[in-house]
Design a protein around this nucleic acid. Structure first.
Lengths: 239, 239
DNA sequence: CGTCGGGTTGAGGGTGATCAAAGTTTGTGG
DNA sequence: CCACAAACTTTGATCACCCTCAACCCGACG
């Protein structure tokens, strides 16, 4: 049985779900697993028998090119189900890795599939979750493809802030973010050195700071301006 | 009623669909629309009442940043349904534009939703289509984030080749591709000038050529090597 | 035959990469 | 609680890939 206030908050934003539906989801048999930082939870090519729900910690999806360069595709925070797709696509096409110590809940495909078969509203909500995630991925393409280093970093932080807020994990201007500068570089398509320099500038301009595994936002309007951030693509997440 | 050999071929690769299911899809009431090159089919923020299926031509999804830079998120070829998501997400978060003269089929959301409600297999297949598309988007992130200019272009061509083959539109080493160099640049996160120079090199090395609205692949193994192309992420598309 | 969209080429500049080394924090074991 | 190692951050110097700006060319089409 899964008890996650974060997941509840996420799913509750889909207004079509009732308390009874949420209860059905929570009552799915689940096993809990603790994962140490830097451990690969599921690796590319694996055939899975269950989906994982993040209960604690920071997780990412990533791919590595033939010449060994890593690209982080997305960050995942408590309440996310980063491998929901495995329910319908047999092979995972990327790695799922813990960036900090994390706790995940594992729900068997057969149980989840049975619930989806039985409950139309839950099926719709999970499908919509996949679509929202795809929208976030698309904005990420714009981020790595068409923004300056400074704007990339600012946009990433702005998005994380909104997503953290949506599950109740951002307090004031601060939210936990235990990624290293190397991780951030791999997410933005930059190098560690350059990320460090961008951070220095943003710190000096009193826009934001990332240190001690936390993000502190000093000036949200300035951050939004630098990023060119518009949250329409977050759909239900931001609602 | 939609008659598209390309869509059929796409959907048939999902082995769970029978001929009767395909017939149900084909018999949905649909209207056909011709779109001239460069016309925006649906623009960001629109609330839609129908989904469009591409019957002919090249279409793309794109976003434009606050400072006016366009990023093409994906190319769409006959058989694709680029706005399937609109069925569940009310607002479109990007533009859908025709890059060449195109023909699209429009199916009303209500009709499609009714069919999904009535037919579990069709629902599964359409959900899976969304997931496959998300997988393609993720590989695109890697492409713009972590590959050299030459590798980006090569990877794009390799992917298009496989997708064109899957719907029967690639003949031998050639397939139609009516995008301009400016379009390619916006897809890869480069400039027109640089795309032109990369093309010159790939042409000189007898790897590939893009001209007269067509791609010609001279040396597939070399192309795959330059791109670092692995097709596992195409899932059902490439099967 | 003129216009226009798109392709091609050149020169010069800047963002971000690479390489290298010195700090600083974090974590572990004595 | 300290000592040490490992991981991460910071900084400097140099370099290259790709951008910018600016022409010019070419083929399609009226």
């Amino acid at each position: 049985v899964i008890e996650s206030p974060f997941l509840n908050r996420r799913l509750r934003s889909h207004t079509i779900l009732g308390d009874d539906d949420l209860r059905l989801l929570q009552e799915l048999p689940a096993s809990i697993r603790n994962v140490p930082a830097a451990e690969t939870i599921i690796s590319e090519g694996t055939r899975q028998a269950d989906c994982c729900i993040i209960l604690r910690g920071l997780v990412c999806r990533s791919k590595t090119t033939d010449i060994g360069k890593r690209q982080i595709l997305s960050f995942h925070i408590p309440g996310d189900i980063p491998d929901l797709q495995s329910l319908l696509l047999p092979q995972l096409d990327h790695d799922i890795t813990a960036l900090s110590d994390a706790t995940i809940g594992l729900v068997r495909h057969v149980d989840l599939a049975a619930l989806i078969d039985a409950n139309r509203r839950i099926a719709t909500v999970l499908w919509r979750e996949c679509l929202t995630e795809a929208a976030v991925n698309r904005e990420w393409i714009v981020n790595v493809g068409r923004r300056s280093g400074e704007a990339k970093l600012a946009h990433m932080v702005a998005e994380l802030k909104r997503r953290m807020e949506a599950v109740g994990l951002a307090e004031g201007d601060t939210f936990p973010f235990p990624a290293t500068q190397a991780d951030i570089a791999d997410a933005l398509g930059l190098t560690t050195v350059h990320v460090n320099r961008i951070l220095r500038v943003l710190r000096a301009r009193r826009v934001l700071d990332i240190r001690h595994r936390e993000v502190v936002i000093h000036d949200w309007p300035k951050l939004v301006a630098i990023a060119g951030f518009r949250d329409n693509y977050l759909h239900a997440i931001g609602a």
